[in-house]
Design a protein around this nucleic acid. Structure first.
Lengths: 198, 198, 198, 198
DNA sequence: AATGAATGAGTCTTCATTCAT
DNA sequence: GATGAATGAAGACTCATTCAT
């Protein structure tokens, strides 16, 4: 007697999730260089099964990127519409970003991998590019507002955003490398906020 | 009539240098994914020849890393023994580092590539690790001294160093991606220095 | 309440027939390259089920060949024992063959596929070979007889048979390709019979 | 000291030819199903080398088809512009075609393989299709002319061409199978010509 | 009896490395 | 010292076949 449809449905969802999880680990570690065999091994699944769930390596990447985009981690917008003065909102935003980078560093690492891998499909990179731009724009806007209220230093806002982004990206890389240094001495948000202090 | 020994010697050195230069360009562009054929083409040399000068792809990497270590770009020590107060020296150090990251971003990019590539020989990675540690230690020492003179804020010095390193690494990545954003809005050293302000 | 034995029996036969029918369509279309998944889909059956009825792809082929052999389409013998002069019987034979080739071209296409596919089991090919030989022999005998009565030209009978077979095989291929040309201009039996005219 | 340019040139040409020859044998035998490993083995060459000369399996096929088209074997046109009555030219044409089919049966076999393989690139198939059409058209024209002079029977010319083509294709297949039967009893051109006799 | 999830051997393709000249 | 032809191991992907339910 065949399995019930729901049972199959469940199996499919679980396996798909299991494989994507494994892919996260594999790709975050090695980027595009990770092999399908590694993904399969990491998921504790046979080689061929990966292809039952994803038509190609590229397809897995796309699914990961999709998860990344859905996850909300990369969405600044929702963090902008908060109560408080611009400066308070900026502080809150950066604090939250730092938490996210610390806890879900794979996401940012994969993001960087994809962006710097020229073999990645233009399609996928473009979507991430746009999200990155939105991220940048949101941050810039908040800074400009905070400058108006005098809560942030009156430097070139673009330089400030670039500095902020560089800092955050650098932290992600350190976090991904699982550096002991970082774990024990994760910099207090206070420190980066000083870059913006008037 | 055979070539003189010196002539041969000179040719060898020139060719070796030519190949290494090409390797810089190739690896900066594609990281470990660059092929030997690309290196050879970039050097305008047959690809058999590359093997006359380097026994393997790994060997080229090692040579690049060696150049990196020799280049002095990664040596903090010589920047520590300068005249001036600790705070002045720290300011001067960071300014110089920023210049270097901006102008020779390939070096730092390669550094990061090697550090995050697990297939890289332990040997090579270890040497870079050590240099990174020295870098870290030098910076930390200077910060501690500057805290003593009250020129730097009295936060946990380790957190400050981590923050500084994250910022610098992040900038290198942006520089390497040849982002227009970065070129036009390279952050003034003043900005990062504020992170350390008391 | 379990199904009765006869009901089971009937189901088994129906399913087996359904799968074989699907296999005919799939193999006629793609030859050996047809996949088991395609056969299953064509039969509207899960692909696990195909293996319940046939132990392997090879086994399906064997069953198809068996059907082919049973079908009578390839049996000349029964066409030889007819009333009439040798020439009349030859004419009637060829006319019937032409009809068969036109209407059941898949059979001959599969025949050719199997014969030219070296990965096919020797076993299967041998049986077809023998049947082909019988076909050949029957035709030859009829020609010889018809030559005796002066109804067929006195050429080398082997050459005549070869020519006849070549013609028929060629037609099968055209028929299988579903060429418009052939459908609209299927050659009158009269034409091929002229090859034999004294 | 490197090889001279001519030496390399020669090697390249020889190897390319060697591989294409091997491909003829392999593909004529198995069609698309032939593996690259078989081609390499047949050419007595390493696996990777085939890819130095041809970028893909598809590319080899294209080269074979190109050779086929260049070979002239499939060009009827040049056989049409001959002296003599239409009937004489038709006789001469068919005689020549028979010789070609007999001696270079691989070509026609490959032709048939490609035409019936749906995975083959549309591009390639189209070119062959056109050539086939030209072949057909040329033959048809000659038949019509010969009917005008009364040298060919006044049947539907399309049926006559179809019959002729079927016969020729069938012979190619037999020739390719290297049937003993065919070798020893290759049908005299006289036989097929009778199909056209008034 | 029936389903479809799971497995792994086989095929195409790339690329580091070797070798004859 | 230099060239580029040749090799083969490794990786992405397909598909016949097995197995739990």
């Amino acid at each position: 007697m065949p399995r019930t449809e729901e049972a199959n449905q469940r199996i499919r969802e679980e396996q798909r999730a299991k494989i994507l999880d494994a892919a996260w680990r594999a790709f975050a570690k090695k980027g595009t260089a990770a092999t399908m065999a590694e993904v399969a091994a990491e998921a504790d699944v046979s080689y061929g099964l990966v292809y039952r769930y994803f038509s190609s390596k590229e397809a897995i990447f796309k699914a990961l990127v999709e998860q990344m985009l859905q996850s909300g981690v990369l969405r600044v917008q929702r963090l902008l519409d908060q109560p408080g003065t611009p400066g308070e909102r900026l502080t809150s935003l950066i604090t939250k970003i730092l938490e996210a980078r610390r806890e879900r560093s794979e996401i940012f690492l994969l993001f960087q991998h994809v962006m710097s891998d020229e073999t990645m499909s233009e399609d996928v990179r473009k979507r991430l590019q746009e999200r990155g731009q939105a991220y940048y724009d949101g941050m810039r806007q908040l800074i400009v507002e905070a400058q108006a209220t005098g809560e942030v230093v009156a430097d070139d806002p673009d330089q400030l955003v670039v500095a902020l982004m560089a800092y955050l990206d650098g932290l992600s890389r350190l976090a991904a490398r699982e550096s002991e240094m970082l774990k024990e001495h994760f910099p207090d948000p206070e420190i980066v906020l000083r870059m913006l202090k008037p």
